[in-house]
Design a protein around this nucleic acid. Structure first.
Lengths: 138, 138
DNA sequence: ACTAAAAAGGATAAAAATGGTCCTAAAGGC
DNA sequence: GCCTTTAGGACCATTTTTATCCTTTTTAGT
């Protein structure tokens, strides 16, 4: 349970690789995909989501590619993961409060809520800049 | 991401219902399934796993059913969830250390590890007895 | 012994999610 | 106009989820 999918892994690896470039540098999707060992067409979908959310700029045509749209220090791990995986929540009741009629009275619910808040606190506290700097990720 | 499946939800709800019975009381699967609003045949599979793991005793035949095999205060939420969902880990590298060649040097890895440890700490600290006592779960 | 009750275990299956691929269109540089 | 590169949509295979069904085994009661 609670596992990041490939999509989430690729999203994190992909944006870390982009963040390793000099800021503003436009990188080719094909280069990032190869370096990070991610299927290019899959990474394309992920970066398209990033572009819509304003994490990256995309440029079409010859000389095009992707660049970070914001400093890596302002993009958190949580933002990246939630961009592709949706809200981080250990059970289904949590994201939309209504969805669980038991919410108000269910002790189990409060436990999941605690787990969620702890996870969010950790992921909010980690930026892509830190990860790009510290990781030896390929 | 990080979501408990139905199986996990049913496992928790099911064992909480069993824990509401007087200790040692043998309850019918059909009764628990109905009370907890869980498909009976699905709950059967879950309780079979519980029986193998020693959380519950099962009795076949007329007058049979299930009872808790250990006091509810000695069964943690983590144990119940892991019984049916497998190890709790936010990404694939964590459960088996070898699986991720990047483990040693990857900063992302250490973040997931922190998330995992926090979650485990919370789930280890909650017993089925507490949940059975405090929850108004149907 | 017979019967009914109840769990055990295996096979099966529909639906959804995952993890992609492929093709055409659009945009930009030369 | 041509080449490069991303955008977007359609499609698809595999796996996981969420069950259901059937037969067997065990037990209690008569």
């Amino acid at each position: 349970m609670m596992e990041l999918t490939r999509k989430g892994e690729y999203a994190v690896r992909g944006i870390i690789h982009l963040a390793r470039q000099p800021y503003g540098n436009v990188a080719l999707l094909s280069d990032i995909a190869e370096e990070a060992d991610i299927p290019q067409t899959f990474l394309a979908k992920i970066f398209q989501q990033f572009a819509k959310l304003g994490f990256v700029n995309s440029y079409r045509g010859s000389g095009g590619g992707f660049s970070l749209a914001r400093p890596a220090s302002t993009i958190t791990l949580r933002q990246v993961v939630e961009a592709v995986e949706g809200p981080i929540a250990p059970n289904r009741c949590i994201p939309e409060a209504d969805a669980c009629q038991r919410s108000a009275t269910c002790a189990v619910h409060t436990v999941w809520r605690r787990v969620q808040l702890q996870a969010l606190e950790i992921l909010d506290g980690v930026t892509i800049e830190e990860l790009a700097r510290e990781s030896n990720i390929q």
